[in-house]
Design a protein around this nucleic acid. Structure first.
Lengths: 241, 241
DNA sequence: CGCGATTTGTGCACGAGTTCACAAGCGCTT
DNA sequence: AAGCGCTTGTGAACTCGTGCACAAATCGCG
């Protein structure tokens, strides 16, 4: 992040795309494009226009073209994008050419569901191990995997070369689990616990808080109902001039 | 959104805060502040400085102050914010003074977990009804609630005055469910299915895609490992001049 | 072979959001 | 009562992201 790139502004002579330094907003949209592309590929289309792909991904077509231009020119003017090629490019950019191993910590209500979620496997990830602090849960088989005690985390993580951890524990335990994950060599964490994690530099944390999403919706609900019940929304011009 | 506010720039004489027109980014952070405040209140603190609250919420203190300033001046210079007062203010702004009823559609793997998630209840929401299209699941009791058939959605939504719907179905069914929710009067949707929903204007949709979060992390993993294995990261100055 | 239809890639302007830096205000102490 | 230290609230610069609009490029057809 804090180091210069000695390469030119737009690709290098070596032929390797090598770290095009994507905007974070673009990175966040690439998975959405990828999903849309897979869907399009299934319908038998070989090429897709930016307009079509943008519609399938729910974004503006100009934004989509700009996003894709950041990873190089893989479209053909007058034609569109080659679906298969674009899928390969995005998967490479996202580092999905290798199936990544994920450790899931916390096999409670939510963790149980995540362990059984087929969407992970189908999109490039393999849940390699399940952990829990509760001895009563250790040994329980879930989806073909036995729950292990959290104390085994370091050993298993090394053996399976796990770099991504998912925290699905109660908030009170989350920081300890995060520390354990980091100590075990995990450098990316997906946190479902409603709390802030502090991790050393170089470790990425993304947070998913289900209640927060609902609260944001609640705000908009609140605003909508306020609008319809306030004078401003109904009788604005009613006074007449 | 597209209408003028006849009020002055900063509050009205009526005494009601009434739609301060918050930036979306601020709205997304308010729930985080709220969670941090509840935590702080539990530890017995009556007031909290912007610095302290910012740390607890994982944000910059300047950003926090600007966010809070949007909902009015509820801090005391030289002292900080009154925790209880601030909680009330944020809860009011988010429309959490009334407990909102939520309909959950899709009682599969994930939906089952969501139905049992205590975090919803503790943060202002009540799961008022569960629905599924699978007749085999209808009638099954989950967490004190019987699963109902999706065809009952409109009736139940009206009876329970449900304005928020959660979609936890497979992607293939999500659009139909969304249509049904909208038809039943739902104006806010939280979508866990990996697909784009199209809804009429006035309906808010938020999306949570677990695989996308992992793919974003995968990108950063990919970049990190590329950095350490590429010459640029290690032997930059090794050639010497 | 040239022309027009089509679609990508991008320069540019605009808007939203973030961060800095500091004046204004509050309470405590002397 | 006056001064001092602390903290909020905010103006202003800056960064990041978005969207328009159009030139450049490609294909197909006559």
């Amino acid at each position: 992040m804090s180091q210069h790139r000695p390469t030119g502004p737009n690709g290098r002579s070596g032929g390797v795309p090598a770290l095009p330094d994507l905007p974070e907003a673009t990175v966040a949209r690439l998975p959405e494009y990828l999903r849309a592309l897979h869907h399009i590929a299934e319908t038998g289309n070989d090429t897709i226009s930016s307009e079509g792909l943008a519609a399938a991904a729910g974004v503006n077509s100009a934004k989509l073209r700009k996003d894709l231009s950041h990873l190089g020119s893989y479209g053909t003017r007058g034609v569109g994008y080659d679906v298969a090629l674009l899928i390969d490019q995005i998967e490479f950019t996202l580092g999905l050419t290798q199936r990544r191993a994920v450790a899931l910590v916390g096999v409670g209500n939510l963790g149980h569901a995540l362990a059984g979620y087929a969407g992970f496997a189908s999109r490039g990830f393999r849940i390699a191990a399940l952990f829990d602090a509760d001895q009563a849960r250790v040994g329980e088989p879930i989806n073909g995997l036995d729950v292990r005690h959290i104390s085994e985390l370091a050993t298993v993580a090394a053996a399976e070369s796990i770099a991504i951890g998912v925290i699905a524990t109660p908030a009170a335990a989350a920081q300890d689990v995060a520390d354990a994950l980091v100590a075990a060599g995990v450098t990316s964490i997906l946190n479902f616990a409603p709390c802030v994690l502090s991790v050393p530099e170089g470790v990425d944390v993304r947070k998913v808080d289900l209640a927060i999403e609902l609260q944001i919706l609640s705000f908009h609900e609140h605003r909508k109902s306020a609008l319809t019940s306030l004078p401003g929304g109904l009788a604005e011009e009613a006074v007449g001039t």
